[in-house]
Amino acid sequence: MRFQRVGLRYGNGPEIFRDLNFTLAPGSFHFLVGPSGAGKSSLLKLLYLAIRPSAGTFSLFGRDVAGLDREEIAMLRRRMGVVFQDFRLLDHLSALDNVALPLRVAGAREEQVRSHVAELLSWVGLADHIHAPPATLSGGQQQRVAIARAVITRPSLLLADEPTGNVDDAIAVRLMYLFDELNKIGTTVLIATHNESLVQRFRHPQLRIENRGLRLTAPASRVTA
């Protein structure tokens, strides 16, 4: 993933980013930190192709995103897992069906879907809530469903927006280990978080948003900013 002089503003609004230059190497793990309103969610939206930069160039998995059509964007998104800050679970589906969505969308066989999803939901502590609709789950449980949905396909890139914001510390640590495990098998991970204790405990490089730019604030073993 490579940003070159990327700028972003919404319509005629204020500039969110100016001249962002950074590269995330495959298999790296970064925290994305910064004060509220600094643009963490906007940066993630750029990365999961929900918005386009208003300036500069940005390539993902070696492809310049500027010229991609909807079909190509869909194919790139299948290589990503995204945990949205507001979860974006589908209320009319069960936890199992929510987590199964990325597999079904990609055309996986139904018997594979059910066994993989049930196993993952057990792993995140929701074995007893497989058939529960999201509305009946607590905020923390919904967040775990959202995380399970993001990781079910073992994506090449995992983007998470405050993925531990609604869970207690023990669950947060458990989820971080899940992200670490994914990272060990090759997934590039970028987690936007306010949770300083997690950032300190898991000692991954930090990308800090400051003054409409990015600054690397931890040892840059696999990142150049």
């Binding site: 998104r77 995204v82 974006r88």
Partner: peptide, 16 residues
């Protein structure tokens, strides 16, 4: 619209 947006964000093609 919202559900369709979610499907799209997790990689659903328009044809799906």
């Amino acid at each position: 619209q919202e559900v369709i947006q979610v499907l799209s964000l997790i990689g659903a093609r328009d044809a799906y």
